[in-house]
């Protein structure tokens, strides 16, 4: 069953088309990669899905409910978590508080404080941030900030995770750890969409890859297939 369906969305900036009739769907428990050169419209897709603007045309559905016109907080509460290309932690808060915020704000009613704390600790453990619990988020390294973004999104208890360039700027070792983490999350049932300009993660993780260029979807398929397509190579090189 398709968890997320994007149906022919077109968006404009001024009179210029940023996305041109882009469609794709994400099956439950899959990892999907969105790749493409700079300015292809990848982040715009995430912004449209998470509700920051209404696309000029087209529909977006999540769990078969149309969410095209829903405000961001409502979409988040339905179980759609996301991270940002440039990490945006709450810098004045500690790592623990950042994750806690994700938990507190996404639930319709508050859980028992002990459970909240336990759950927050488990997420921190999973993302190898336990030792940094009391550190201010603004003082973290890039790699830690990226993990914190994922941790905060996970704390909202999402069904679908949208990750925007989570591997950019990380060392190969850090990328390996991230790959393992995402594999593990996926094996526990998490559906993930990854924007991955440098193809660090998609090749290893994605079962399906969507290629964008200039706001259009130019190809879709298994990573090895797609990467061998002429049109994709041209888009990246030219």
């Amino acid at each position: 069953m398709a968890l997320l369906e994007v149906d022919k969305i077109t968006t404009y900036r001024g009179s210029q088309k940023v996305l041109d009739s882009v469609s794709f769907s994400v099956e439950e428990k899959k990892i999907v990669g969105i790749i493409g050169p700079n300015g292809a419209g990848k982040t715009t897709i995430f912004d449209a899905i998470s509700g920051f603007f209404k696309p000029g045309k087209g529909r977006i559905s999540f769990e078969r409910i149309e969410i095209t016109h829903f405000p961001p907080h409502r979409i988040a509460k339905m179980g759609l978590g996301r991270t940002f290309q440039i990490p945006r932690p709450f810098k004045e808060q500690t790592v623990f508080e950042n994750v806690l915020l994700g938990h507190l704000m996404s639930r319709p009613r508050l859980m028992d404080p002990d459970d909240v704390i336990t759950e927050t600790n488990i997420i921190l453990e999973k993302l190898e941030l336990s030792s940094k619990k009391e550190t201010l988020a603004g003082e973290l390294t890039l790699s830690e900030q990226r993990r914190l973004e994922i941790a905060r999104a996970l704390a909202t208890n999402p069904k679908l995770l949208l990750l925007d360039e989570v591997a950019a700027g990380l060392s190969p070792a850090a990328i390996d750890r991230l790959v393992n983490l995402l594999k593990q999350l996926n094996s526990q049932g998490m559906t993930i969409v990854i924007i991955d300009h440098f193809l660090n993660l998609t090749i290893q993780l994605a079962s399906n890859v969507i290629v964008l260029d200039n706001g259009r979807k130019i190809a879709e398929g298994r990573p090895d297939e797609v990467l061998n397509m002429r049109i994709v190579r041209d888009a990246y090189l030219g």
């Binding site: 998470s50 509700g51 920051f52 405000p71 961001p72 907080h73 988040a76 509460k77 978590g81 996301r82 940002f84 945006r88 709450f90 915020l101 994700g102 704000m105 996404s106 905060r152 999104a153 704390a155 909202t156």
Partner: peptide, 8 residues
């Protein structure tokens, strides 16, 4: 913006 994505 981030606040909205965690449900605020």
């Amino acid at each position: 913006k981030v606040s909205m994505t965690i449900g605020i």
